[in-house]
Write a protein that binds this DNA or RNA. Structure first.
Length: 417
DNA sequence: TCTGGGGTCCTTTTCCTT
DNA sequence: TCTGAAGGAAAAGGACCC
């Protein structure tokens, strides 16, 4: 809705901020283990565990006294898995996110290896988001370490294009958590997201509409949120490398090459046009659990093992649904074969469910429809078409303690189906 | 010795009904 | 009874993101 203002009163300019925590996981770990500062540290590796004895010997408050030599190192890691993130010191060795653990171990065998501790990151995530909403209530969650904030109507949100408010938020987050972040403020989400990358770490970037040509167009297309490796390659094949190249293309040409929706979106993105609002609340669409095996498995040869994994995944999804108060109608499975090809099968039920047995049964039917003659490396179970329990006119889920639902196990028939 | 897990959204295909 | 068009829902796949 366009609002009307009295003559001489200017409408507030739309100011949208994108806030990105700096090296979030690694920074949280360094708060716990300050003795690792400056060392190559790698976080990740599927089944990495900090030695139980270590955690027992040192109380939570004494973790900083664990000697550096006592930490597990990459050299001793076995198995599959990838790096989730690495500290700057580790990156110096050529290690980066999504790299295989074994490759990383060759590059820097002495790097300290820490398990991913989502519980801890979520704790800090809640803390920094609480700080933000105290100051600016219109905030959109974009995962554990990112948010969009609508500065438009916040006191001070217009001063210096948003810089004053951004500074206040940075300072408040640092005081509350000890963590730093980078903030970009722009007329919309797309530009704000790009702006937050300009000045990392602990930086603030202000972008105005008039800066498009100078600050945005020279950038690689890939910097646009929504252009991934596939789109980048296709653009490059047409001689489009920078955002400016993209902006120079007629809208119609992009629509013809990339389809109606994506082509038009590309054109808008290049011209800095993005009207998406900052959404403060949203409902989940699906919940899933998946796991990559230590070795590739075969439906017939590894029947017992697969059956147990399959049952566990169904129980986990059911427990997730129950704990969060959802049911779902569409049950699906996902397989990743040894060649990394992915297949999915799903089936929609007449009635939504959060029951492990029902999920297991329906997922089993889905599994019957895929090629099980070949070995595969990953199995997943998904429930979609979610509905909130309290929106169905049913009593809300009992205040479930996590794990309570998970303890209700399915009698394992020994069969995959 | 490659390549995790949990999501969203979009497009295309398929199937069913009218 | 056959055929085709049209539209919707479900299914499958793929790109992308954190």
């Amino acid at each position: 809705m366009a609002r009307r203002y009295a003559p001489g009163v200017t409408a507030p300019t739309r100011r949208i901020a994108h806030l990105d925590m700096d090296a979030f996981y690694a920074s949280v770990e360094l708060l716990r283990y300050p003795q690792l500062k400056g060392l190559p540290v790698v976080i990740g590796g599927g089944r990495t565990r900090l030695d139980e004895a270590l955690r027992e010997k040192y109380s939570d408050t004494a973790l900083r006294f664990i000697p550096v030599e006592a930490f597990p190192v990459l050299r001793d890691y076995t198995g599959r898995g990838v790096i989730t993130t690495a500290t700057y010191a580790a990156r110096q060795f050529g290690i980066g996110s999504a790299m295989g653990m074994m490759k990383a171990a060759r590059l820097c065998p002495q790097a300290v290896l820490l398990p991913v501790d989502f519980e801890e990151y979520r704790k800090y995530s809640r803390a920094f988001k609480a700080v933000i909403t105290e100051i600016a209530p219109v905030m959109e969650d974009r995962g554990v370490d990112e948010v969009y904030i609508d500065f438009t109507a916040v006191p001070g949100g217009q001063r210096e294009g948003g810089r004053v408010l951004a500074r206040l938020i940075q300072k408040s987050i640092l005081e509350a958590t000890g963590l730093t972040c980078s903030i970009g403020v722009a007329p919309n989400k797309q530009l704000a997201k790009m702006a937050s990358e300009f000045n990392k770490p602990n930086g603030i970037s202000i972008v105005h509409e008039a800066d498009l040509q100078e600050k945005i167009w020279p950038l690689d297309c890939r910097k646009i949120n929504g252009i991934g490796p596939k789109a980048e390659a296709k653009l490059a094949a047409q001689g489009i490398h920078t955002v400016g190249d993209l902006a120079a293309r007629p809208r119609q040409a992009l629509v013809e090459a990339f389809g109606k929706a994506y082509g038009a979106w590309l054109h808008d993105a290049a011209w800095g046009r993005d009207e998406r609002p900052v959404v403060t609340e949203s409902e989940p669409v699906s919940m899933s659990r998946e796991t990559t095996f230590d070795r590739d498995l075969h439906a017939a040869h590894d029947r017992a093992e697969l059956g147990a994994v399959f049952t566990r995944l169904c129980e986990q999804v059911a427990a997730d649904l129950q704990r969060k108060g959802y049911t779902g109608r569409t049950i699906g499975v996902k397989l990743r074969y040894t060649d990394f090809r992915i297949v999915t099968r799903d089936q929609t039920l007449a009635q939504p469910t959060a029951d492990a047995k029902t999920i297991r049964h329906t997922a089993g039917l889905c599994l019957k429809r895929v090629d099980l003659a070949r070995r595969f490396r990953l199995l997943g179970v998904r429930v979609g078409g979610l509905q909130r329990l309290d929106s169905l006119g049913k009593p809300a889920a009992a205040p479930a303690s996590p794990g309570q639902a998970a303890t209700k196990t399915i009698a394992d028939s020994g069969s995959l189906f």
